[in-house]
Design a binder for these strands. Structure first.
Lengths: 253, 253
DNA sequence: CAGTGGTCTAGACCACATG
DNA sequence: ATGTGGTCTAGACCACTGG
């Protein structure tokens, strides 16, 4: 036995399948087209349905496919570029941002990581503003904006029970604009959608999402923190000056 | 018949499992600790191993767990913040960046998306510089930097076959510094690791990664494109002025 | 209602790391 | 050699969408 090379690592079936499917998508299918159902595909490739699904899962993760229960599997359009870092640093809710305020509640119970960044005293009152972002008619992100009551003292009185939820959200955002924004800070990581965010994004709970954490600085401390949850399958987050993402130059031939 | 609420959506087992495990991780385990093996855990919770694995998969995706074949499942440390957008815009390979050149090859065959962004003529020659990034002793990212030969004419002669691969990489990077950088552009999206990147990142092929695409502008066009592949399980990409990410303030009590 | 994708099971074998 | 996670199978049932 002296075969000098041991690198005959057998490629997993689902990996090979993914490659084959991927090439088929490029050559034989067009955007929006519906694929044969999973049982049929599995049979056609001679694998168990679970194995076929493992391949589909990866392709969906890469934004190539879109699967909807009760409907079928379709070829996904290219990911949309979503601008996350406008050159101008502004408060959320400033004129011209793509977010829509939904509601706002007051809470004393926020995620530990957020409490740490806001340096909250235990039980300190916080406004939680819920916003959503829509691009090209599709919901792409949901956001929870955490604003300590101390940052927007004037909002306190206006957030009575009689006012409707969206109005409360607007009030908090309006008060934020009064502060001088000294800087901001962002990070991006992979997460899985909470049940409520998932519903809003039209996905199942646990769907992969890109979580953008934005810290807003004012008065020498962190005045607000936003947790923005973007659909990872359909979005490409863009940063920097040019919002024109990849894949726009279609005419060159 | 007339139950006014139909929202009795039964929570999937793996979802509930994930919640339970997540809480157990917070309270009963510490970083680096090794969990019971999958067969044991499945038995303990009274589910099939596949179901248990579905829960573990999510927790790994969220960076809570680390699984290694032949070893076991351990509790992962918090994600490391990795600075992606230094305030100063510089060429790759500028002094002080965290990347290590590995090698460079010349190719006429690059990913379609890259070719489009570089406005490559079909078959145009491109240097592909391969770099890797290490933080805290762990490999966190692999990168392919695509530099059209037209951008670095001087590098042409110096990249003979006799020179070793890493030297070729350095040459291309050095030539890049000669150009005046007019701007850059970034986007982040979810992907799955190619086989070679996976090996370099010490993961299995298909592992979830954050793909950062950087375009470098010079001479009125796109002079280079970098595709940087970060481990999604262990990394949090940070942007902006402050590199101090969340979760650094450990002493406050 | 029929058809789709989503969940779940109980097994088997394989690749890898470690002693 | 043993034990781990990774892959794969062949089924079953459920939740949802649409006509």
């Amino acid at each position: 036995m002296g075969t000098t090379q041991l690198e005959t690592a057998p490629e997993p079936k689902y990996w090979h399948l993914k490659t084959v499917l991927s090439e088929a998508l490029d050559s034989e299918f067009s955007v929006g087209e519906i694929l044969p159902n999973e049982r049929e595909l599995a049979a056609r490739f001679g694998v168990a349905r679970a194995t076929l699904r493992q391949a589909l899962e990866q392709l969906e993760l890469e934004g190539r496919l879109q699967r909807r229960r009760g409907v079928g599997t379709t070829v996904a359009p290219p990911r949309v570029g979503v601008a996350v870092d406008p050159a101008r640093h502004t408060w959320p809710g400033a004129p011209g941002d793509d977010w829509q305020p939904v509601d706002a509640v007051e809470s004393r119970n926020v995620p530990a990581a957020v409490a740490r960044q806001l340096e909250l005293a235990p039980g300190e009152q916080v406004h939680v503003v819920h916003r959503s972002r829509v691009t090209h008619g599709q919901p792409v992100a949901a956001e929870q904006l955490y604003v300590p009551a101390r940052s927007v003292p004037e909002a306190e009185t206006a957030t009575g029970a009689a006012v409707d939820a969206q109005a409360r959200a607007r009030t908090v955002l309006r008060e934020l604009q009064q502060l001088e924004l000294e800087g901001q800070d962002r990070s991006v990581e992979l997460g899985s959608a909470r049940a409520d965010d998932a519903k809003e994004l039209d996905r199942l709970p646990g769907a992969p999402v890109l979580v953008v954490t934005t810290r807003y600085f004012a008065g020498g401390r962190t005045a607000a923190v936003a947790l923005s949850t973007y659909r990872a399958d359909t979005c490409r987050l863009t940063f920097g000056d040019n919002e024109t993402g990849a894949g726009v130059t279609v005419l060159a031939s």
